[in-house]
Design a protein around this nucleic acid. Sequence first.
DNA 1: CCAAGGATTGGC
DNA 2: CCAATCCTTGGA
Length: 204
Amino acid sequence: MSARGQGRWLGRKFFARPVLKVAPELIGKYLVHSTAAGAASGRIVEVEAYDGPEDQASHARFGPTPRAKIMFGPAGIAYVYLIYGMYDCFNVVTGREGEASAVLVRAVASVSLPTGPTGSAGRTDGPGKLCRALGITRAHNGVDLTLGVPLGIEDRGEPAPKLSATPRIGVDYAGEWAARPWRFIETPARDAASAPSAPRRRKS
DNA sequence: CCAAGGATTGGC
DNA sequence: CCAATCCTTGGA
């Protein structure tokens, strides 16, 4: 459907802005993975921003290493890496070329799979499960998301959701950077059960 | 070359 | 609370 590409897929201009502006705007957009079998998609509901080599939580903190150099490149490119030897995590590069910033997509909802009913009834829990659910792997590292295939991010014209910002997950080692509220989630309708769960981080 | 640790998840 | 599991990085 490249013929109807006008504004359907988020383009270079959207991604080529400061990551702290792009990240919250990705909430409510749709991550779509198209294959021969059909399209797998999910509504983005949780993201994290990683901004520059000085961000001690970012993979770019060691400079443009073989793995992280893609973060220094042009915006709109997928950065998919393997974590803990078993899970793939999906990111999109943002900002100007030469800067090192990216958005980690941590969760999607309303998952739709080509094989039929999702069964998931909705939401993935984390970046690893998200990639597994949508079939995203390291093979997608470096693909241009603005083309829409095989991977793209779609604006379906939904109104901007209400957002909350919290510190990022699993970056305790990052010192003062760990405290920055650079994780964005759609504000839960009710927080009765979910709010108290956050503090539990390993290592007391 | 080698040792250490990780943008996580699921099991005990 | 902690093991799984392997790639990336930094240091010797």
